[in-house]
Nucleic acid binder design. Sequence first.
DNA 1: CTCAAAGTACTATGGCTGTCAAACTATGAT
DNA 2: ATCATAGTTTGACAGCCATAGTACTTTGAG
Lengths: 120, 120
Amino acid sequence: MQTATDERVTDHIEADEITAQGLLDALVDPVRRSIVRQLSASGSDIACGHFDINVSRSTGTHHFKVLRQAGVIRQYYVGTSKMNTLRRTDLESVAPGLIDAILALPETARRHTAAAPGRR
Amino acid sequence: MQTATDERVTDHIEADEITAQGLLDALVDPVRRSIVRQLSASGSDIACGHFDINVSRSTGTHHFKVLRQAGVIRQYYVGTSKMNTLRRTDLESVAPGLIDAILALPETARRHTAAAPGRR
DNA sequence: CTCAAAGTACTATGGCTGTCAAACTATGAT
DNA sequence: ATCATAGTTTGACAGCCATAGTACTTTGAG
């Protein structure tokens, strides 16, 4: 049974240790972006095993680790499950507008709609 | 010498062909981000050879090509010089706020103080 | 105690990519 | 014509990284 002081700690970084390169490295991967997207859409924390990602468990662990070490998510255990929280406030203070801008991007390939060539 | 109809064309993509993955892949590299930063700060077009990047010319060519094919910049020749324009309007229409958010990120002088890895 | 569930650690691998050097092209000036 | 300037192309290489498989650990339930 765990409490608020569960010692199965994970290596989180402080908000002021978040770097531009770390953030972009973390968010450039589509699987990780999908994780962030699901977290953002959910509004509540999600266990690692409950994400809709098409990779093996070990690969999933890898992605969560990258996100955690970049400062994008925070993790904590609840029983055998590891919950994930999007560090919205920290991210907003370090990179205002970045997460929103990235989450707003359409992930599906755009269809060529024969539009006017908007120059410049 | 040619002017507006210089046929030494380069493979630009349309605004609606810009993808999230392509944009992030282009902007995750610090050298390319530096190029975009210099373009944005300048306000006017800059020739490839006039950027402050410390990589070889051939590597520079590679980075400009990635940025161009991702739809981040537009290029055109003026004599032997190849000028670069930031596609602000197109980027803003496809990824509102993204460029601004990324350019606002503090680029740490990447001094490796060796205090991160290891952990379990 | 025993077992299943949830993740992690470790290892290997394949592919991608940033890098440079060298040879090449194209343009403009002398 | 000759030369210098600006950038490209090709080839090679090193390093990183996403991926998966297997074994292992921890936790909670029966």
